[in-house]
Design a protein around this nucleic acid. Structure first.
Lengths: 149, 149
DNA sequence: ACAAAACCGATAAAAATACTCGGATATGAT
DNA sequence: ATCATATCCGAGTATTTTTATCGGTTTTGT
């Protein structure tokens, strides 16, 4: 049940874009450096995110990437699904057009995969990039507080 | 976030053993046939489950496998962890001795992976093999009911 | 014109997955 | 005792996925 680097890097990169939202296009190089990701590899992931309509790109000098929507309107679930495919632990419980085997209607294990998918979806679909930015700010505030105690 | 065949086959096989619990040793061949799994491959998975103490094996003619504990006391979570490793989507939020990177304490994405793991664990740790057998019986009852309507 | 930066396609090493095969060993039934 | 039945064990292997790397093309602000 591991997440591959695609999903991990993708969420990190999108979080980085959310933190710099409103500052114009953010260059891939900076994102890769701040998040500790191979630049060329991240480029491929950004292409996927762009084709999925989650980010916009501006080419040429001073170009970069911008979130296609406000951070409030992009969930972690969307990002992961775009980069890793459906959240479902098996094909037979995919959100859309699941490939069910012939005994799916009476398959008991299937009900378990379904519950796993639903539980996971509830978590990732409820977290937006704005939430992450807010949490990061909060954490930063707590750090400063520590110096005064 | 896919489950590999290891976890899927493992849960299916353990469910099969639970359905036949009390009938003495169940041969691998039968399990493989009923669940549609390659016999030799399942053998390897059973070895892992045996070493983890989830099943006992009886060698020789009329031999086979038996659940090491009552179906009430074996959860789906245990089976999946044994065959697939920790439920955690990343190493840094593993249940025991997680391999954290140096910025783990302030890592915002890490809190997400943590929530995913917790949510998933809650589901799979709350389902026992006995629950699955009960659900299967219930489903069978409903099928019979359909003929009478 | 130039440098910055996204875009694109190909390649490739490494790891994981999903088996397959052949034989060794144990044991209940005849 | 023999034999068929089953588990046990180690090795091999084709395929896929992952995780990149590389080199060049195009776009565009300065």
């Amino acid at each position: 049940m591991k997440l591959s680097t695609k999903g991990r890097y993708g969420v990190k990169a999108m979080f980085d874009l959310a933190q710099h939202f409103g500052e114009g296009p953010i260059a891939l190089k900076g994102i890769a450096e701040r998040q500790g990701i191979s630049e060329h590899y991240l480029e491929q992931l950004m292409a996927v995110l762009r084709k999925a309509g989650l980010v916009k790109s501006i080419r040429g000098a001073q170009g970069g990437y911008i979130l296609a929507r406000e951070p409030e309107n992009i969930t972690v679930g969307e990002i992961i699904r775009v980069l890793e495919g459906p959240l479902a632990p098996t094909e037979c419980v995919s959100e859309e057009d699941p490939e069910m085997c012939k005994n799916a209607p009476t398959c008991i294990t299937r009900t378990i995969w379904q519950k796993m998918r639903e539980s996971l979806a509830e978590v990732v679909d409820s977290i937006t990039l704005a939430d992450m930015v807010r949490d990061a700010e909060k954490l930063k505030g707590q750090e400063n507080l520590m110096y005064y105690i």
